[in-house]
């Protein structure tokens, strides 16, 4: 792979670190939402027949994680996560190197009815957490995100404002010291929509107070 310092994220030009002050200074309220852009992560699109044991076994062997077959759920093993996207479609999410994950899956599935496509470069991931993270997303996303319906570990493809997103509720890193930091989400969005979605979320978060982090 080429030198990663040559990479540019689709939000790099906004200078996220420098934007933080603008929102904190303007409001006297404590930030109800924290947002940041996740660093590059591997994203591999996997297609195949969920009901075919050979397929499911091969995937599990290659990844260590079982293939999620329950709609809108994820599975994981170590730092690999697998998202259910549809009855025959998944994402394999890794902290880095999508092409290597894709190669591994391709090798494991050779000769089977399956398709493996590296899509790591197609999307970025906006991380949102905080006491009002759920209210913020509700402004743009038609999903019911109430904890009775959508909890940590679940994923869904939907819309946020006019951008298609894949939403993944994750554990909140802020929820330390027995304090509930509110829900946390990873929002995957196509690169070309990233600026739009970021600006939209910034604007929508204004009433809650917004903190911007490096990730």
């Amino acid at each position: 792979m080429a030198d990663s310092f040559l990479r540019h994220s689709p939000l790099a030009h906004l200078g996220l670190a420098g934007r933080a002050g603008a929102f904190e200074a303007g409001t006297a309220i404590e930030a109800g939402v924290t947002m940041g852009e996740r660093p590059y992560r591997g994203l591999v699109n996997l297609r195949g027949p969920a009901g075919d044991k050979a397929f499911a076994d091969a995937v599990q062997k290659a990844l260590g994680a079982a293939l999620p077959v329950e709609p809108n759920t994820t599975t994981g093993k170590g730092d690999v996560a697998v998202f259910w996207l549809g009855p025959d479609e998944w994402w394999v999410v890794t902290p880095s190197d999508g092409p290597a994950t894709a190669d591994k899956l391709r090798a494991a599935l050779a000769g089977q009815k399956a398709a493996v496509t590296d899509v790591s470069e197609s999307r970025t991931c906006i991380h949102i957490r905080g006491a009002q993270a759920r209210d913020l997303l509700a402004k743009g996303c038609p999903l019911d995100l109430h904890p009775r319906v959508f909890a940590a570990g679940q994923c869904a493809q939907s819309l946020c404002a006019k951008a298609m997103i894949t939403l993944h509720q994750v554990a909140n890193d802020d929820a330390e010291d027995g304090k509930d930091g509110g829900p946390a989400y990873d929002v995957y969005v196509l690169n070309s929509f990233a600026e739009y979605l970021w600006l939209w979320l910034e604007d929508a978060a204004r009433e809650y107070g917004l903190r911007i982090t490096s990730q």
Binding site: A161, K162, S192, F193, Y196, D203
Partner: peptide
């Protein structure tokens, strides 16, 4: 709502837009 000005409609940018 907030669908006005720059947020009226998504402006899709290529990696070389800047």
């Amino acid at each position: 709502g907030r669908d006005v000005d720059e947020l009226l409609d998504p402006v899709r940018r290529t990696p070389m837009h800047g």
